[in-house]
């Protein structure tokens, strides 16, 4: 699997290259600024790009802007944005094209190597990887939402993990229950939230995220 990395701090860039190479990825290019990233994305057409949100020359949200621009040129180009902080506004912008294949994670998560590598693979495969912090904020913001209030505590846990983008099997493994139990929970959740059932897991995740993203009240 071919990956482009964009990170301006050499320490972290080298770490990412080492980590992803050791996990079976082929790092085709590792850049340290926005304009070079755009060039690398067009040149290599990688299976996935791992991008730091803050990049030179502006040292603002350059990475995110380049990622969005690249996805405008090539819809559905898998990008995973890394950041020292998560901002719902940015999550919304990444998700707004409904094309999936996006990730938005705190840099902290790289420390959990297995889960991080899993997230990169998921995004490359067209899935999503939203930080638990983003999902937590979305759920807090909608705490007075009535359909959400009808979920059982277990269903809320499943909903949160599902919104992060985890597969049924991964959710089952986290919660130490069977895949079948998770499938049942997910059906209940979709019914209670009034979302259409679907066999496509990615589509279900996008529907759930769109629901959580909508204005509260």
């Amino acid at each position: 699997m071919r990956v482009v990395i964009a990170e301006d701090l050499a320490l972290l860039r080298d770490g990412l290259v080492r980590l992803l190479s050791a996990s079976g990825f082929e790092v085709v290019e590792a850049v340290d600024n926005g304009p070079m990233l755009l060039g690398a994305l067009t040149r290599h057409r990688p299976d996935v790009a791992v991008i730091d949100v803050r990049l030179p020359p502006t040292l603002t949200d350059e990475g995110l802007r380049v990622a969005l621009e690249a996805r405008r040129q090539r819809p559905g180009l898998p990008v995973l944005i890394l950041s020292q902080y998560v901002e719902q506004l940015y999550a919304r912008e990444l998700l707004s094209d409904q094309a999936g294949a996006v990730g938005y994670l705190l840099k902290d998560r790289i420390g959990d190597v297995d889960q991080f590598v899993d997230a990169v693979r998921r995004v490359a495969a067209g899935g999503t990887a939203m930080d638990s912090e983003v999902i937590g904020q979305l759920l807090t913001r909608r705490r007075s939402d009535e359909p959400l209030g009808r979920l059982t505590p277990r269903e809320r846990e499943v909903l949160a993990l599902m919104a992060e983008g985890l597969s049924n099997a991964a959710i089952a493994a986290r919660l130490l229950v069977t895949d079948k139990a998770i499938a049942k929970h997910i059906n209940n959740i979709l019914t209670k939230l009034g979302l259409p059932p679907s066999d496509d897991h990615n589509r279900r995740v996008m529907a759930v995220l769109a629901y959580l993203e909508a204005e509260p009240g």
Binding site: E87, Q88, L89, R92, Q137, T140, R141, R142, R143, S144, E215, P216, G217
Partner: peptide
Amino acid sequence: AAALHVPLT
């Protein structure tokens, strides 16, 4: 962004 942090429309 701040507006997205509060549970209000």
